[in-house]
Design a protein around this nucleic acid. Structure first.
Lengths: 347, 347
DNA sequence: TTGTACGCGTTATCAT
DNA sequence: ATGATAACGCGTACAA
């Protein structure tokens, strides 16, 4: 019933524990005959080494912990893909956990990872993420993605969300939109707040004095749907026309928005132009295909892991905590698809 | 530099290791004053317990290992979501790994999980999965999803892929298709083989004596695109018309297929009707929305984890290996969307 | 209530 | 080449 241990294998092969260990780990100072017997015993007993014990004595786990808001869905799945690809290339395993936006869950997850991982890759784009810093083990190399943890990280990747919001607005204006609106992410998410700020500043600059309506969503498809409905309803009531261009703070909401607009019989992009954010895989399959601000989600994960590995190596080499490592800033880039391609853009 | 250990905390709080342990684990036989000092010392030193050591002595990790072909993408991401939701409800953490269809990687992953997890949830839909059975630690509760590992599992969830293929054909025939074709998954995947077998048998039954072309894909969007191109090219060359109905072995390929058909100016569903498989989230956003066989991917993950927890509890209660546990079989259900909704279905 | 000491499964050091 | 044995960090039975 209990799993076979090295001791069992040693007894079965009639050698000492030490020899069994050496044989199994492929060291060269073992007689061929002994190695044969040990390996045979091991496979007969279905021996699998106890990772916990192993990492205890070796002070190494070959595993890195990944903490994301969620561990599924178009966006995070792409991040994980990037992390996974880079991790595999280095023989590292992944212990992933989702915080679901809850600081307590994040703390629990980090504690559960203690002693089980060699480094931490954290994405916690919440305004209260500083609280996380207080519980992070300070011996673990840490790299953050789009997070404001504090000054503890040895590397970080940030997204220029403000600049992305500005680009979205400039593009919509370019396409001839005279009225603008925004569907934002949740107030607890500082990335969302930055995008919103970018939208408002650029909109004010392009169309001075005009009031721009903002609907507060939560990054889900459903809230994007609700946002569009809200604009539709407001316009129906006030008699004003729909905004000609809507900047939606992420692609999932933009997809919901598209659905609502189609239901209402509004033509996209001619009546309403749409720009999303993230360029998740689904964006190009939407109808019409979604213009969006590409962040390179895959690279976010890949580069995040690479920064972490760098930090781990530094950490392993020197005995000192490296001074706050490099902070990469990624600028979103406009992907121009049909959802914002208006018939008669000005010359 | 090294992480603080319990001993450090004990020293800092000027108590014994035992008391420190008790205080931190919230046992009641500790003086309030002592507890206060210990907790203070712990947070001052940023103490995080060593999970490896902990699981060594407690013989429990509160973590379950999840082995999938991949850990990202529409399909697997949905499985992970199901697993995650169910796991969170039970306070379990997840150690996920992707085998990438490589038996050696799967073996490596399983070994890496040894002693780090309390149970294993494995999906390995490959024809050579039996090889995995040989290395699975026999003390770990194991539940499989769409896998043919052998008789070692304590629970399993299978998909009626053959029946799904049959349903797809029957539906296309219902919609008035007189000629059929199939884009299959890779030969190494036995789910793909079952779907293909279902297609061929049902097609032969409905349209006796007719030859049905099959393009061999690999479940990627790109191979679906290639499949459609291949049919297009073959028809152009032979002068025969396109097949009126195509059963595509998964939704990702169907999406690629859709793209190629659109590029070629073929109307879906009127010229060519399409049915996919899986009902991944993207299916309803395709244009036209994709008819497909819903497998309930989320539930696959959720129920898989529940079966595993059951097995773990049995395992914990009795000392004996439970006899091969329940095997759930899931029947795909047709989701009728526009990609197969033909104008004039027969009465 | 508190502390001492043992053992969990493994690797590494040191004799042999 | 091989075998005792000391760590690794932690929980807990037992003694005080």
């Amino acid at each position: 019933m209990k799993g076979a241990t090295l001791k069992d294998v040693a007894r079965e092969a009639d050698v000492s524990i030490a020899s069994a260990s050496r044989a199994i780990n492929g060291l060269d100072n073992v007689a061929e005959e002994v190695r044969r017997r040990v390996l045979e015993a091991a496979s007969k007993l279905r021996y699998v080494p106890h990772g916990g014990a192993r990492s205890l004595v070796m002070a190494r786990t070959n595993t890195i912990g990944v903490l994301l808001p969620d561990i599924y869905g178009e966006f995070f799945s792409e991040i994980i893909r990037g992390v996974d690809v880079a991790a595999r290339a280095r023989g590292l395993h992944l212990l992933v956990s989702g915080s679901h936006g809850d600081i307590n869950e994040a703390v629990t997850a980090v504690r559960a990872m203690g002693g089980r991982v060699d480094g931490l890759l954290v994405m916690s784009p919440f305004v209260d993420s500083q609280d996380l810093a207080a519980v992070l083990p300070l011996n673990l190399p840490l790299v953050t993605i789009a997070s404001r943890i504090g000054k503890v990280e040895q590397g970080s990747i940030s997204i220029d969300n403000f600049g992305g919001g500005v680009k979205a607005v400039e593009h919509l204006i370019d396409q001839g939109c005279k009225t603008l609106a925004h569907i934002s992410g949740p107030p607890s998410n500082f990335e969302a707040q930055e995008r919103r700020r970018g939208f408002l500043e650029a909109a004010e600059k392009a169309l001075p004095g005009v009031e721009h309506s903002v609907f507060e969503g939560d990054f889900t498809e459903e809230s994007g749907y609700r946002g569009a409905k809200a604009f539709l309803a407001a316009c129906a009531q006030s008699g004003e026309p729909m905004p000609e261009g809507i900047f939606v703070a992420n692609d999932m909401m933009a997809v919901g928005c598209l659905l609502a607009l189609r239901e209402a019989g509004k033509a996209v992009p001619d009546e309403v132009a749409l720009v999303g954010f993230d360029d998740i895989p689904i964006a190009r399959f939407a109808s019409p295909p979604l213009s969006t601000l590409r962040v390179g989600v895959f690279d976010l994960g890949r580069r995040g892991l690479e920064l972490l590995v760098d930090a781990m190596e530094r950490d392993h080499a020197e005995g000192e905590l490296p001074e706050s490592g490099e902070g990469v800033i990624v600028s979103p880039e406009l992907v121009f698809r049909d959802s914002s391609r208006r018939r008669a853009p000005p010359a």
